[in-house]
Design a protein around this nucleic acid. Structure first.
Lengths: 146, 146
DNA sequence: TATTGTTATACTCTATAACTATA
DNA sequence: TATAGTTATAGAGTATAACAATA
């Protein structure tokens, strides 16, 4: 079943990329901004929340910061950390972007009723929680590496 | 919601890659073999079934064919077409691979009950059908490009 | 010594256009 | 002319290791 999940996920991402291109924001950047909505995160936290390696997050944040959508500031508590927050400009962009993404979702999940969509959402969140993906502040040790 | 779908899809793929590596088969190759189970397909058909561009399918099939898991043969009806079928060796490999993939699924969806998994599967299939992904023999014209 | 962010690099995936052979 | 497969290539995404600054 994971194959189906992956395939649909790719298709959804393609839809996002298509719809977000005119706005000039990538799907991943959108996901990052959405994560930052609820307050600043360290890059580690953001990385685990987005399920991407911190090293790969650097370029993405450089881009967001260059365009004035996000800001990095050193955490006074632990000067190793960068607290990533979003700017007002970022918030404004996010509004626009979220609207476009909602349209994509609307078409992508058009085969499902509203109830089914909510149900699907619940199921996905449940999986995400079990694989410690969505909850931002929570670090898991993989140990497996693989 | 598509972002969540995409993220979980990536995580699932990573799990597959991890579990399939020792067997020497990639997630996409596994998906391809599964598609070929029910009979030969043209590369176009296989491409749409896997939601990947036919041009990118070439290398994948070269690999499968080199290892004796699949065979390409010209369609006598239309000599432009390659009918892609799987060999007995491919079938044997698939058995092994499917078992490993099932283990991955089992862990990945461990947060869901059996009922919930079936429900999720139904919902995903429904989405897939609406975006003309899963049904192998069915071509859609995008027109959008994008 | 361990952790955060960074850099660099290699590898895979994806997208696109152009080519060939057949129709 | 249009289609199936192929080739080549550029771009995006991903994984890994090593490094500097800080703890």
């Amino acid at each position: 079943m994971g194959f189906l999940l992956a395939q649909l996920g790719r298709a959804a991402t393609r839809g996002y990329r298509c719809a977000l291109m005119p706005i000039g924001v990538k799907p991943r950047e959108t996901a990052a901004l959405m994560r930052l909505q609820d307050g600043p995160l360290s890059q580690q936290e953001l990385g685990t929340a987005l399920d991407m390696d911190p090293s790969n997050l650097v370029a993405l944040l450089n881009d967001l910061e260059a365009r004035g959508f996000a800001v990095r500031s050193r955490d006074p508590q632990d000067r190793r950390r960068h607290l990533v927050g979003m700017t007002d400009q970022g918030r404004a962009a996010l509004d626009e972007v979220v609207a476009a993404a909602a349209d994509v979702d609307d078409e992508f999940f058009s085969a499902l009723t509203q109830e089914e969509r909510e149900l699907l959402h619940e199921l996905l969140v449940k999986i995400g929680e079990s694989t410690e993906i969505p909850p931002p502040v929570e670090v898991a040790e993989a140990e497996d590496g693989c």
